[in-house]
């Protein structure tokens, strides 16, 4: 997956987890929590969906990398590089 494809995959997960949010103007440099309502259970949901959809494991010590879209894509890039886009 390219960074753009990874971003699209994360957006798709966010749309599932937070279906009331408008993500069209999401700023990749800002923290998710500044832009949308997400609590700790939602972050666990992101981790779970990555595991279910792409078999990507995110260990607990790496959760801090999922703070913004930019940091999430950078973190996932090496993990998802070999995964074909859907």
């Amino acid at each position: 997956m390219t960074p753009a494809e990874i971003r699209a995959a994360v957006i798709d997960i966010l749309e599932t987890i937070a279906p009331d949010e408008d993500l069209t103007n999401l700023d990749d440099t800002k923290e998710f929590r500044e832009q949308m309502e997400l609590d700790s259970m939602d972050f666990l949901d992101i981790v779970m969906e990555l595991r279910k959809r792409y078999r990507v494991q995110v260990p607990e010590e790496d959760y801090e990398n999922l703070v913004s879209m930019g940091s999430t894509v950078s973190y996932l890039e090496p993990k998802m590089a070999g995964i074909p886009a859907e």
């Binding site: 599932t16 987890i17 937070a18 279906p19 009331d20 309502e37 259970m41």
Partner: peptide, 8 residues
């Protein structure tokens, strides 16, 4: 409820 609450 909002959709997020229904889902959760």
């Amino acid at each position: 409820q909002n959709r997020r609450e229904v889902r959760r």
